[in-house]
């Protein structure tokens, strides 16, 4: 039990903050990615490869580089940062809201990919039948598409959640390591490693690993195919 003595209130704060960030980010990502991927899956424009590439770009940019540009964009001197300041009275950079926005951008491909492949593989005959029965577009989406694509939806949520938990580079750049506000688990872990507090770092890493393992194992257990497909793809 000795290892647990190194779990301080600061660490519990960091764990709670990380879970909150991952949960809110994943909910927002689902709200964005569901309509977006449905539109992408049913649209065959000439510029589709370009649009798809734009949404996959967060996979390519190194997180610290992405974070650097977000730092510039979120600063009170940029139009976005200024707009946010005028609307909310708070700063976007060095705030929890800023982290959520950064994480949504950073994890977008992880929500988009499983949903997109799920929607592409969906048998369109169900929709045609529903149409002939007089279902509206919205009804068709929520009563036919979502129940049939339960696996990709769960995968999208789980992957964005897991990806946000492991997020480091972006938060490092735009967070400012404020305890209880922007000091997430990965940042606390990094600071302990740098401060040569290896014992504490080991405990934290173990927590992070066990938690992520359980999460991923649950995901694979419930819908192995959808997850493994999208992981391979990204």
């Amino acid at each position: 039990m000795e290892i647990f003595s190194s779990i301080t209130p600061g660490i519990i704060d960091a764990v709670w903050l990380t879970l909150k960030l991952a949960f809110i980010t994943s909910i927002i990502l689902l709200a964005i990615a569901l309509p977006l991927s449905w539109w992408l899956a049913n649209w065959q424009g000439r510029t589709k490869p370009l649009i798809m590439s734009v949404f996959a770009l967060p996979l390519v940019l190194p997180p610290t580089v992405l974070g650097f540009y977000l730092l510039i964009a979120f600063s009170p001197e940029s139009p976005l940062g200024q707009l946010w300041y005028n609307l909310s009275g708070n700063m976007l950079v060095f705030s929890f809201e800023g982290l959520v926005l950064g994480s949504v951008i950073y994890s977008l491909p992880f929500a988009l990919q499983p949903l997109y492949s799920g929607f592409v593989q969906l048998d369109k005959r169900y929709l045609e039948i529903a149409y002939s029965l007089g279902f509206s577009n919205v009804e068709r989406f929520f009563k036919i598409v979502i129940p049939l694509c339960k696996a990709p939806v769960v995968a999208a949520f789980g992957l964005s959640f897991a990806h946000t938990i492991g997020e480091f580079g972006v938060v490092l750049m735009i967070g400012g390591s404020i305890p209880g506000e922007t000091q997430v688990l990965s940042i606390a872990l990094y600071e302990q490693v740098e401060a040569l507090a290896y014992d504490q770092a080991h405990v934290l890493s173990l927590l992070l690993l066990v938690f992520s393992f359980i999460l991923l194992a649950a995901l694979y257990r419930f819908n192995g195919i959808a997850v493994s497909r999208s992981v391979n793809r990204s």
Binding site: F68, L71, F74, S75, E77, V93, G176, S177, Y190, E191
Partner: peptide, 15 residues
């Protein structure tokens, strides 16, 4: 910031 350069970066980017 994790180091002095990052603290400086927070300043030069206007944060």
């Amino acid at each position: 910031g994790k180091n002095i350069l990052q603290a400086y970066q927070y300043f030069t980017t206007g944060g």
